[in-house]
Design a protein around this nucleic acid. Structure first.
Lengths: 133, 133
DNA sequence: TATACTGTATATAATGATATGAACACTATA
DNA sequence: TATAGTGTTCATATCATTATATACAGTATA
């Protein structure tokens, strides 16, 4: 299976991270079903003209977040999204992402109430953008 | 004026960033009033046992965020928080901090609605923590 | 104007993140 | 069991960030 992935050397985001985000998106949008085998790290690195280490790093990060599963000698496979343990890992990641954003913003001189207003505005703006599509 | 600042070499946060956050906190909490002169970059670097470049970097970042003002030959001074231009810069920084957090979290497979719930939970938890103090 | 303070700029070292190739270990199967 | 496919580990190179010392430039004042 050949993945519709494109990476850019010019991007400020590291290559392994670009790969991660695109595979995540494919899984979350349902284009990659549970059980599907991903291309081998060698095949993918060949397609993207990067090192095996780079694709490996991307796969490893995705595994740590519960999106995929690697089995030595066999390959790498999409994991089912339903597993409670994985959903919990993911929710914890999101929770601490928000927590960090809020705590850092508090240092800019805003109260929690003010920050909530700004946060609501961002959500509203993003929702507006989604509806327009 | 001697600032109540402590930096740790063991921290994973860079020293210049530790200095930034602590000065920000002092300003935002009202312990450093507008017009107050900060210690010179040399005096501060001596107190913290770090290089002049490091304190300079912290001051420069704070200036870019509108918290302080430096005048060559004279020194560095706390800026008034009321200026509209500075408040706007600061709000933009907070806005994009949140936006980035939300967009990255969306890639974890959550809808905006779900993310809003998680975000609300974080705000509630933080508010609870503040009230307990 | 000499001096002793300010901040500024340049060149450089040290560290950590990113990316690499080559050798290693496991699995399936001809 | 030989081979060709998987993932894994190790040593290393490259690059950006962090941190440094030193020389430079502006300001106040004795």
């Amino acid at each position: 299976m050949k993945l519709p992935i494109v990476v850019s050397d010019d991007s400020k985001e590291p290559i392994y991270y670009q790969i991660e985000l695109q595979i995540k998106t494919l899984i979350v949008s349902g284009q990659l079903q549970a059980g599907t085998a991903l291309p081998s790290i060698r095949a993918l690195s060949h397609d993207l003209s990067c090192s095996v280490i780079t694709t490996r790093r991307a796969y490893q990060d995705l595994e740590n977040n519960g999106f995929i599963e690697t089995v030595q000698g066999k390959g790498t496979f999409i994991k089912a999204l339903e597993s409670n343990a994985q959903m919990q890992i993911r929710e914890e990641v999101v929770y601490s992402t928000f927590k960090k954003a809020i705590e850092e913003s508090k240092l800019m001189g805003y109260s929690l109430k003010q920050l909530r207003e700004i946060s609501d505005k961002v959500f509203d703006d993003l929702a507006k953008g989604e509806n327009q599509e």
